[in-house]
Design a protein around this nucleic acid. Structure first.
Lengths: 162, 162
DNA sequence: TTCTCGAATTAGAATACGTCTAGTTTTTTG
DNA sequence: CAAAAAACTAGACGTATTCTAATTCGAGAA
């Protein structure tokens, strides 16, 4: 069930208790966790684990191509273990919820050579933005994103209301 | 020449010395600056200006739709004053350089209803990733991004070389 | 087994980026 | 001009991430 763990072993990546736990957390949930959330879940299983190890492991897994970093517009990056299935993201502008999506028509997407500026292009990332059902419904309540890191909620009025 | 400034005046946005300077900095350069870089350039012209004013102004301009925030994968957000011309971005994974691009075929891009999860989709962002010519050429040297905020430079080797 | 050495891990300090607060200055309005 | 509102400032604060120095772990050599 945990393909990530198997792939890592197969690649000869030195496995340790800490790394195995992190890999299990990543592969076991269907949400896009932040480093801090991964750390919290890891601590619950291995109290001695350090934040530095979590950050180091996430960084290495990203470099190995086993993990995708999602920047969205929130403060903390989120990690997507679904790197083996090419996909894109749909993000709620209000609460930060992220969904994996497979858009249609991306095959036609291309960068004309006149727009390449000599770059060696290696990939494309597509982010759909919008409002998830709960956020689209309720206008006023504060975003439900974890640990107060939700998007801005101030108005765009030119002058404040009376 | 500075369309941004004119648009803001036309919209009745209360102009001040600080805001004018920030708008001029944004419209005058063809790069995507971070808040800190904008602050540094502003201080050179108006030494009393405060960081808070820069952040407040950038936030308001973004809410007004005159400015685009780009998250890429670096720590600091970058600001794109080119909001009046719909476009996307090409980003160097190594040094963080950002170019505005107009990809072909994005009209065919769509999210089938089965992939919408009930979201009210408001927009799409496309980011091409790759290596700019200097970064593609020189393998070893450190990234040339400003103030040490460049992307990771460690290797992805499973074990360090001897 | 014991020794050795490099890799992995740790706690906590340090840094980077951004936000908030309280008080001051400036602008607008009556 | 006086009152009220808005903009601004300095700097404290918070959060996410990186760095550092010391420690532990583990595979192979002796």
């Amino acid at each position: 069930m945990n393909g990530l763990l198997e792939r890592l072993r197969k690649r000869g990546w030195p496995m340790t208790a800490q790394r195995r736990i992190i890999a299990e957390i990543l592969a076991g949930e269907h949400v896009h966790l932040s480093a801090e959330e991964i750390f919290q879940r890891a601590v619950a299983r291995l109290p001695e684990i350090s934040r530095a190890t979590v950050y180091n492991t996430l960084k290495t897994l990203t470099e190995l191509g086993e993990l995708l970093e999602i920047s969205s517009n929130e403060r903390a990056k989120r990690y997507d273990p679904n790197a083996s299935d090419p996909h894109h993201h749909l993000i709620c502008q209000r609460c930060g919820l992220i969904r994996d999506v497979h858009p249609k028509g991306q095959g036609n997407l291309s960068l004309p050579s006149g727009e390449r500026y000599g770059f060696h292009v290696t990939g494309v990332e597509i982010m759909f933005r919008g409002l998830c059902p709960p956020c689209a419904g309720s206008r006023d309540p504060a975003p439900v994103s974890p640990r107060g890191s939700g998007p801005s909620r101030s108005s765009a009025r030119l002058r404040s209301p009376k």
